[in-house]
Amino acid sequence: MVSSYWEYANPTRFMQTSGWLLPVVAVLAVVTTAVGLIWGFFFTSDDFRQGSTVKILFLHVPSALMAINAWLMMLVVSLIWLIRRHHVSALAAKAAAPVGLAMTVIALFTGAIWGQPMWGTWWVWDPRLTSFLVLFLFYLGYLALWQAIEDPDTAADLTAVLCLVGSVFALLSRYAVFFWSQGLHQGPSLSLQAGERMDMAYKLPLYVAMTGFGLIFVALVLLGTRTEIRARRIKALVARERMG
């Protein structure tokens, strides 16, 4: 019986729990993503204006969503690390960053390749596109700081501080770029008050693909955190060997 959430912050507990949880999440992630993308790619009809490019939506929206959610998750676990000093949370933040970076790259690429036939250009300095480019830079800086620092606790502390400060500035940048340019990009794809509502035929596979990308993120974070816990243990063992 688990008495509190925080028990998972214990690395041994985490290894035990994630040991059986990871395969379950991984299988679910693969199945859900496959269903969502196959449904989206093979079994949706073309849009009357966008033609078959509407199918790119099933990659673009879930990856953009996860690119932002990964940063939010990193912000939360960074706070947990700074306040409660649970090593697992610091390592989870480290494990999440490459996934967030990859999601940002996918969102930018699929956006560009959709923009070419639809807007007639690969890239415009539209607020949303610009915000994502800035997010991409934040991920790069965050990962570079992890790479640069030897001592794992110092690295965890400094990257957590960077993540907090970076979040504030990422938010500021978002408002700044909206101020700076009115864009071509349509409003949030799923928002309720948007002028053009999306048809159910697109919405359902999109929801499935979003769930799938979310599960991929969870599975990779679990896997990455396990890797980092092992890496820390190796470091500790090697250090002890050197001492005597």
Binding site: L37, F41, S52, T53, K55, I56, L59, H60, S63, A102, V105, I106, F109, T110, I113, W114, Q116, P117, I216
Partner: peptide, 13 residues
């Protein structure tokens, strides 16, 4: 466009 988007995204993943 569509196939490039799918191929690129799936290979990144």
């Amino acid at each position: 466009e569509v196939s490039a988007a799918y191929i690129f995204s799936l290979s990144v993943l």
